[in-house]
Write a protein that binds this DNA or RNA. Sequence first.
RNA 1: GCCGGGAUGGCGGAAUUGGUAGACGCGCUGGACUCAAAAUCCAGUAUGGGAAACCAUGUGUGGGUUCGAGUCCCACCCCCGGCACCA
Length: 862
Amino acid sequence: MEDRYNPADIEPRVQQRWHDTQAFAVREDPSREKFYCLCMFPYPSGRLHMGHVRNYTIGDVISRYQRMLGKNVLQPMGWDAFGLPAENAAIENNVPPAKWTRANIDYMRGQLKRLGFGYDWARELATCDPDYYRWEQWFFTQLYARGLVYRKTAVVNWDPIDQTVLANEQVIDGRGWRSGALVERREIPQWFVRITAYADELLADLDRLEGWPEAVKTMQRNWIGRSEGLRIRFPLADGSGDLEVFTTRPDTLHGVTYMAVAPEHPVARRAAEASAEVAAFIASCAQTSTSEAVLEKLEKRGMPLGIAVRHPLTGEDVPVWVANFVLMSYGTGAVMSVPGHDERDHEFATLYRLPIRQVVAPQDGSTVDVQAVAFTDKGVLCNSGEFDGLAFAAAFDAIANRLGAEGRATREVQYRLRDWLVSRQRYWGCPIPVVYGEDDQLVPESADRLPVVLPENVAWEGVSSPLFKMKSFLETTLPGSAAPARRETDTFDTFFESSWYYARFCCPDADAMVDERARYWMPVDIYIGGIEHAVLHLLYARFFHKLMRDAGLAVSDEPFTRLLTQGMVCKETYFREADNGKKTYFNPAAVATVADEKGRVIEARANVDGQPVQIGPVEKMSKSKNNGIDPQTLIDKYGADTVRLYTMFAAPPEQSLEWSDSAVEGASRFLRGLWRLVHEHVAVGAAPTVAAVSLDEAQRTLRRRVHETIVKVTDDISRRYKFNTAIAAVMELVNALQKAAAADDATRAVKQEGLETCVLLLAPIVPHTTEVMWEALGHAPGSLLDAPWPVADSAALVRDELNIVVQVNGKKRAELAVPADLDAAGVEAAALADPQVARHLEGLTVRKVVVIPGRLVNIVVA
RNA sequence: GCCGGGAUGGCGGAAUUGGUAGACGCGCUGGACUCAAAAUCCAGUAUGGGAAACCAUGUGUGGGUUCGAGUCCCACCCCCGGCACCA
């Protein structure tokens, strides 16, 4: 063992050994318990960012820990390789997306290896490989055959200058990000997968996902948004048909004073044909992005259509309005408006001076003024004719029965969840395996013609998909026939690929979508990734897994037994603001800060010119704020173990993590100190075992701390997933071992046990450093990976004395050491007898004494 | 706007079931070693008062429950994530 800690020397050596021994290659072994640990695979954007480092370190720590428990651990890695950034790179640098993507993968794979993650690289896959995507093409044709796929028009963001569909992200303040053109909503045919057919199961199974965070399950429940209500048909006054709405509050039916329809609603369109004003209003509503976050923040606007419906109970005429906040994609695209009992309707009614009518009164008999503010609670009906006096449930039933008998309404369960729009008008994605024959006859590809390979060698002209003009791709024949056909140019949403990669990792070379090996490894035991995926990706993956189950390709109901959601990696921002308000951001690495005598940062200056810059808030590392710290620089400087240790120590996984360069220095210092401690210990020669020596009190106390640390760290890693406190506990133990003089055999024996314990407990986190130290402590090279996780010796944990805190009226006044077996009465007597305590009792009467055994005594006085 | 989450010293964080607020680390201050620096080691470090013992205050804001609240309840403020074509 070298006397100085030199990660640049040891890390490549240890990694070479792992490589030579194929240390992380795994095979199915039914005789052993499996553990499948999966991290969300990265988009190959170019370089690893800190979020990746954090995510993959967490996964690697869990994998290595599980392996030390003796399990057969699968930890794979691959690439979510299709997506928009590759097209942007193609447009900017004139490089084909495939080439750009594969170069990024090569670079990032090297970075992952440099960090020492224990992946079975033989299972690596990239979603842009035809061997991967052919199976989702095949699966899509199966879904089509089962009626789970359909085509329908949907609204997209259309850039009228670039003549292309824009992602929501590409619409900035209502304009295309490249062209600056005002974006239009445009309807085009799209492909959908029927996720709503699985809505009930996706909802119900959340209750069985005990290993998922409640927050994620709540978000998914709300996203699915199951509600029971009434579909009511209001007859149009001109007799041209019905206007259908869905409501969960049929009890408020008498309070309807107007109807509101989406700008895309057929009723609105019909009105627009007759009125230029309405047409202009609808056209203006179309000039906005499709994003719900944008739509919901718009100023509420509306216009009467000059059309009315008949109220199904009163027969009154109710005016129909078009309103920009009604979404065509929700429900029927029309709502009955009850301004007295709905906040949004109230706001709109107030704005346009529409009548507000109270039809529900508070249960407790109090009065409310619905003209001033909507009363949204459930209550007792009033001003509702024969239904007056009924409570919510009774009113719901009575109105549902009445309208039902007249054929005007049906009970319905509705979901907020919409079917999954899977088609994209983009090049860099998996081609949707469909062709169109004469008369646009739609034919799915046959299995023998799959994969439909995406041509990779493409030249970019303009901004839209080169597939649109590529004859060699477009022109084909119908499956099993010589008849000419045209290929679909749409590609899949990239969530399609990421919805099943976990299953493919089990058998990446299978000559089928998955084979029997998936039965051994699935489901994933723990899935780790960013909280931002709480709904979309994780819901689609759950859905896809159920689709695969129903196709006989999976046996479990859910793909991920446990879910660990990771917080973001943040960093402070630095900027200068120009007169026009435009901010220029400076990378923290290019800024020097000045602190006052307390360490408070009071000033920051740019290295480039030495002039001050403004200190901004701490935000998620991003390109736009130029506050990213390149992990590579730190790995080069400190080594992988220090970066791994710091990322795990700085915050628990679920919380956001604020990056601090100086604290990285601290992690490095700890490893150097531990290295030195081990070096000094082994330099003297082999130490005796604890069993061979007898211990004095100080040695027993030190040994007790060793075993308490085992208990603490094991609980933190296995149950709590709190690696920061696990590391803190080991740091405390190292500090204690450092302070112990080691002249005698007994202390050296305890130290040997303590150091071995530290090495074992840290092995999953800093695997290179610990592997070398393990060897120095007398173990076989390479044996740490499969060394058994330490188990605390209960005899070593026994304490004969406990510290009890004594409070007077809830304020800490003393601390006393009492024998561990002293009963509550004895503890109380000891507390009252303590002179520090007595001082605070003088002249007062003891009213009550609360004794919490083993912890605290609270004396209540007055 | 809707859904979910967060807020604790100068900083990152700890306090696991309502029971000692500030573990561990960073930074900072003072000291040792050194020609000097780096590295390392020792001491101190929530705030206010005090020489000290100690006392008071203190977990985003305002209320409440409790012997006892960072933790539970009510109302609010600010920040972050998601909102269906970023991944």
